[in-house]
Design a protein around this nucleic acid. Structure first.
Length: 198
DNA sequence: TGCCTGATTGCCT
DNA sequence: GGCAATCAGGCAA
């Protein structure tokens, strides 16, 4: 059902393309207590050039180092002092581009997710980048992990590819007009304050 | 050294 | 719909 684990070559792709290709894929975390997994239904692309909203826009720092790592690396950062967000490094090593995972459809380990999320409605378990990171128990400790091997990984999912809608990104001020957010059309699991039209 | 801001969330009115 | 919570990086002084 999860298909096969996505290889390095999958991530060595233009960031916008990878952001689309990640929709419908399965994010899996294998932890001592069991498996926690969900289907990606919403992503955002963050580019190296012409994208002042990207963490890499001002160059490499101690915080964003892993964003410049090999494609397939996890970049996890703390935002607003309290929420973690998971990104997947794309393009090429040293480029500083990544895809933010914004929402999942829970597939496995929902009990574990409910514990971590404090008993919210199931629809809220992984709807939003901070929420899914909390549901999977991801923190800065997971920053820099290789998604091609180890406890955290991405799987191909089924052969069917979902219909994709592109919209402006959520919650940013700079370059807010660029249509770099991608959503599985009609998914009830997507976040988005309020998606326009769809 | 200090101030300001942010790829968010959830609680309050 | 508004706003506080909370902290590290980036930049000005």
């Amino acid at each position: 059902m999860r298909g096969r684990r996505l290889p390095r070559s999958f991530f060595e792709a233009p960031t916008e393309l990878l952001a689309r290709e990640l929709l419908g894929r399965i994010l899996v975390r294998r932890e001592p207590g069991g498996l926690v997994a969900g289907r990606i239904v919403e992503t955002e692309a963050y580019l190296a050039e012409g994208d002042p909203a990207s963490h890499s826009h001002r160059g490499e720092t101690a915080r964003n180092r892993s964003m410049f790592g090999r494609p397939g690396t996890a970049y996890v950062y703390l935002i607003y002092g309290m929420h973690h967000c998971l990104n997947v490094v794309s393009a090429g090593e040293g480029r500083g581009e990544a895809v933010l995972i914004r929402a999942l459809e829970p597939l496995e380990g929902q009990d574990r997710m409910r514990e971590r999320r404090g008993g919210v409605a199931d629809r809220e378990l992984c709807r939003g980048p901070g929420r899914l990171a909390q549901a999977l128990g991801l923190t800065r400790e997971h920053d820099g992990l290789d998604l091609c091997r180890g406890e955290l990984g991405l799987w191909s999912g089924g052969a069917e590819r979902p219909a994709v809608v592109a919209t402006p990104r959520v919650g940013i001020r700079l370059a807010a007009e660029l249509p770099l957010r991608f959503v599985v059309a009609g998914s009830r699991w997507a976040s988005g304050p309020r998606h326009p039209g769809a």
